[in-house]
Nucleic acid binder design. Structure first.
Lengths: 242, 242
DNA sequence: ACCTGAACACCGTTCAAGT
DNA sequence: ACCTGAACACCGTTCAAGT
C-alpha cells in the first residue's frame, strides 16, 4: 500500500523508477532547480522527485552543500569560454571581461547558488575549464604567474559575490525593503554625523548593476597588472600536522 | 501546567520575564550568537531564550534575514574606525587597509553572518559609520566622488566576501573536504586539457589568507585610483513604476 | 489592542532494520 | 551487500483565538 502499485507512473511519464546514480541525481537536481528554484532543491524534495527516501541520496552525495556544488558545476557548462581563444576578436582585457560577464550571467539566474559557491567552491570539470580560460587570458596579457594565481581568485570571487548579492533583490515584494531601507538611510544621513555620506548623497547610488560590474572588472584588471608582485611563500600549510 | 509555576526561574537567574523590545531581542540574539553560533540564532531558539513563542518575535522583527542584519550591525560596533582620523599615523592607503582589516577581523568570527550580509545589507548606525569612515579616507586620498562611491562598494564587498568564504573551512572535520578536493583537482590537472593550471601547479595555492587579503586591498585601491571615471547615469531606477 | 498557542508545511541527517 | 522506512531533532511563518 505504500507506493508499489504496478502501473504507478504517478509522476510525469517516467516509465519506471530508474536506478540511482550520482549523475542521475545531479541531473534531476538541475531540472528541479530550473523548474522550482534552488530553494526547492533539498534532499527530501529531490528524493521525492526520484521516488525514493532521502536516506538513499546519502549513498551518492555527502550532504546538501556538496549537492549544490555539483549543481553549480553543471550550470557552469553554459559559460561561454570562447573569448579565451587567442583567435577571438578584441584584446585580452576585453575578452577577459566578456568571459567573466558570461559567467556572471549564467550564475545570475540562480543567485542562491552563487551564495553557496562562495562557501563550498565547486571543483568539477566545468569549473576547471573556467579557471583554465581565465588563466589563459591573464597569461596572454603577460601577467606573471603569482599575480595571475591570486588575480584569478579576485576576479572569480568578485563575479560570484556580485551574482550572490542579487539574491532577495526583487524576489518577493517585501524583499526590496532591505535596499529601500539602505537607500533611505544613505539619503537621510545627517550632514553633522555623516558628512561624507551626506555630501555624496544620491551619487552613492548612481549607475546600473551592469555598469558597476563592468567598472569593477576594469578596476581589478588594472589593479592586478599594477599592484606589486605578491610575496613568495610556501604552499599554504593549513594544519602543522601535530 | 504549561509553564507558569510562580517560582519558575528555570533559565539562568533572570529575575522575571522582561518585556519584549526590538533592542532586547537583538541583544539576546547577539548573546546567543556568541555562545552558540549564528546557526542557532533562529526565531524559535531565540523565542525559547526569551521565554516566549516564536510568533511574538514577529511583532518586532520582520523575518530572519532582518534579524541577522540587525545582529551584524551590532557586531559592526566593534570595528576600529580610528584609522579614519586624519591624525592617525600612516598615509591614507595604509589607514584604509587597517580599517578594512579591522572590519574583516570582526566579521571573520562569524562567517555565516558575512554570508548573510552579502544578501541583506545592514543599514544601521554602525554600518553607516563604517561607510562614512571609508569615504573619508578615499576623499583624503583625492579619489573623486563617483569613483569613491563605486569603490566603496567594491572594497566592502571584497572584505565581506572574503570573510564569508571562510564558512565551513576548518569547521567540522569533514568540511575541509571541499578545499581538499579543490586542491587535488588543481594539482592533478592534466597538462593536455588544462595546460595553464598544470603549469602553475601549487603556485595557485601559494600564500596565506592574510597575505591574499592584503594584496587584494592593494589591487583594489590602486585600481580604484587608476581606472577610468565611472559613467554618469541618473540614480538607478529599479522599476519604471508601471 | 496586544500577544501567542498551536498548527502548517517543511528541513538535514542517521541508523536499525529490511531485502 | 545494498538500500531505505521511520525517527530524531529541528526549521520559518501564519492566524485564529485568547487575555
Amino acid at each position: 500500500m505504500t507506493a508499489h502499485s504496478p502501473s504507478a507512473r504517478s509522476r510525469r511519464e517516467r516509465p519506471a523508477k530508474p536506478a540511482l546514480t550520482r549523475d542521475g541525481i545531479v541531473d534531476t537536481a538541475v531540472a528541479l532547480m530550473r523548474s522550482e528554484g534552488l530553494e526547492r532543491v533539498t534532499m527530501r524534495r529531490l528524493a521525492q522527485e526520484l521516488d525514493t527516501g532521502p536516506a538513499s541520496l546519502y549513498v551518492y552525495v555527502a550532504n546538501t552543500a556538496e549537492l549544490h556544488a555539483a549543481v553549480l558545476d553543471r550550470l557552469l557548462g553554459e559559460v561561454d569560454l570562447s573569448p579565451a581563444d587567442a583567435t577571438a576578436p578584441g584584446d585580452w582585457r576585453e575578452r577577459l571581461v566578456r568571459l567573466l560577464t558570461s559567467y556572471v550571467e549564467v550564475v545570475f539566474a540562480h543567485p542562491a547558488l552563487a551564495r553557496a559557491a562562495l562557501v563550498a567552491r565547486p571543483f568539477g570539470e566545468n569549473y576547471l575549464g573556467l579557471v583554465e580560460a581565465v588563466l589563459a587570458l591573464l597569461a596572454e596579457g603577460g601577467v606573471p604567474p603569482r599575480r595571475a594565481s591570486w588575480g584569478l581568485d579576485l576576479l572569480l570571487q568578485y563575479a560570484t559575490a556580485s551574482a550572490a548579492e542579487h539574491s532577495g533583490r526583487g524576489q518577493s515584494p517585501g524583499a526590496e525593503d532591505g535596499w529601500d531601507a539602505l537607500t533611505r538611510a544613505l539619503l537621510s544621513a545627517s550632514p553633522a554625523r555623516h558628512p561624507q555620506i551626506a555630501a555624496l548623497g544620491s551619487a552613492l547610488l548612481h549607475g546600473t548593476g551592469e555598469e558597476r560590474l563592468a567598472w569593477g572588472f576594469q578596476v581589478l584588471i588594472s589593479g592586478i597588472t599594477a599592484a606589486p608582485e605578491p610575496p613568495t611563500t610556501p604552499c599554504t600549510p593549513p594544519a602543522p600536522a601535530s
